[in-house]
Design a protein around this nucleic acid. Structure first.
Length: 418
RNA sequence: GCGGCCUUGGUGUAGAGGCAACACAGCAGAUUGUGGUUCUGCUAUCAGGGGUUCGAUUCCCCUAGGCCGCCCCA
């Protein structure tokens, strides 16, 4: 085949599109239930926006972005995530008002240049929320609760929620220094990745799965003990709120997210049904990002859900809702005269808001009946020479196979009842 | 960026160094104008390129793609 979809991208075919629509509907409805409003931003932004917000040493920015110069030589990037564009838009259009809470949600494709594998594509879809303007721990709880409820509404069971705090601008640098000092003496014996991480992102060492590194990680200072009083209190209140809301969660001190902008609360929803890429949802607080991107100092929190991964869980649970949308009327014709009449009638039927179709291939009646069946038509109208002569067409109920004679006027009148 | 496995009609598979088989789907037909059952027929340069060989779809190499893992993330 000469032309195929590009590596890591896939077509959503008609059979699957219905499932996407129904999931998108549930996602929108749930977000709106929590008073979040939709925002749609362009699919590409200036490269700098992502480099500044996500962090230039992160994997996303250093090796996974679809970056290209446009015809005027500007460096553009296909969005690898949506928090930065939403923040940019909120600042640009003055959506963030003093002493006001702004709640936004989005849904759409994201792009990362990675090697495809289970649960990972180069173009994938995310749905997420961003809430601006409050440091209230209860808002952290709401956001986590929103994610939990969404999964619940989608009927997903057995998901696990991991929560952690990565501290703030005050305590995180201290913690990082502490970590660096702790690992310094043993780093020679640890894995190559960790040697790198010691310089670029020491926090990530805590997340390493290498056995050689594990024994050193175990005794490493934990994020929790290193939080400043404000961050510790914030985290305690988040936990309190989660318990009160009846959310089952797990404190995971090794949960360190790969984007630089996170502060304090971070969380992840993981599924055992997925392969190595088991996070369906990831998010956290980012109290310094708005200011860093040129807005007034505004705290914020959000999350993103991977829709393909979500779909994968639904598939693994065999809960794929099969949409069986059929049409109401199929018109089968015999002869040119009948085809002309049929086309006019078809137009009238559709104008009346009834889904209908006819044959355009000049096929036999038998073949047309087959087509009607495949289109899951509830009724088939047969127009042939006899019918034209009598002015009465044959209307067949495809389920009961019973037929009646009907005039075109009667048919139009009866349409709503079909 | 690194590693492993894989790549046969529209789909799912079988096959073997020398006529590519089966199922399903699709289309056409089984005496006059009726679908979902049955029967018959039709539909593949075996991912692309190169090599070994009298001969390769089958063996070897390269490329591309898929799947899975590492890294990382949704």
């Amino acid at each position: 085949m000469k032309y195929t979809s590009q590596r890591g991208t896939r077509d959503i075919l008609p059979d699957e599109a219905g499932i996407w629509q129904s999931i998108e509907k549930t996602v929108r409805r749930t977000f709106e239930l929590f008073n979040y409003k939709e925002i749609r931003t362009p699919i590409f932004e200036s490269t700098e926006l992502f480099a500044r917000s996500i962090g230039s040493s992160t994997d996303i920015v250093s090796k996974e972005m679809y970056t290209f110069p446009d015809r005027k030589g500007r460096s553009l990037t296909l969005r690898p995530e949506e928090t930065a564009p939403v923040v940019r838009a909120a600042i640009e259009h003055n959506l963030i008002l003093k002493d006001n809470i702004l709640k936004l949600f989005y849904l759409g494709p994201m792009f990362r240049y990675e090697r495809p594998q289970a649960g990972r594509q180069r173009q994938f879809h995310q749905a997420g929320v961003e809430a601006f303007g409050s440091v209230d721990p209860l808002l952290d709880v709401e956001v986590i609760l929103l994610a939990e409820q969404l999964f619940d509404r989608l009927g997903l069971k057995g998901l696990e929620i991991d929560v952690n705090s990565v501290g703030c601008q005050k305590c995180r640098p201290e913690f990082t220094t502490k970590l660096k000092e702790y690992f310094k003496s043993n780093i020679g014996k640890m894995c190559e990745d960790c040697k790198q991480r010691l310089e670029t992102n020491p926090l990530r060492i805590l997340d390493c799965k290498e056995a050689v590194c594990q024994k050193y990680i175990e005794k490493a200072p934990s994020t929790r003990e290193s939080l400043c009083p404000e961050c510790r209190i914030h985290f305690e209140k988040v936990e309190e709120g989660l318990k009160q809301a009846g959310i089952k969660y797990r404190v995971n001190n090794r949960l360190v997210r790969g984007l630089d902008y996170y502060t304090r609360t971070t969380f992840e929803v993981v599924s055992r049904q997925l392969g190595a890429q088991n996070a369906v949802c990831g998010g956290g607080r980012y109290d310094t990002l708005v200011e860093a991107l040129g807005g007034s100092s505004t705290p914020a929190i959000g999350f993103a859900i991977g829709l393909e991964r979500l779909m994968e869980i639904i598939r693994s649970e065999n809960r794929y809702p099969i949409s069986e949308k059929g049409i109401t009327l199929y018109i089968a014709t015999l002869g040119d005269e009948a085809r002309k009449i049929s086309f006019d009638l078809l137009t009238k039927v559709r104008k009346a808001g009834v889904a209908a179709d006819m044959d355009y291939a000049g096929r036999s009646l038998k073949a047309q009946m087959k087509a009607a069946d495949r289109a899951r038509a509830r009724h088939t109208l047969i127009i042939g020479e006899n019918e034209i002569k009598n002015g009465l067409y044959v209307l067949k109920d495809m389920k009961t196979a019973s037929q009646i004679e009907i005039s075109p006027e009667e048919l139009i009148n009866k349409l709503p009842a079909l």
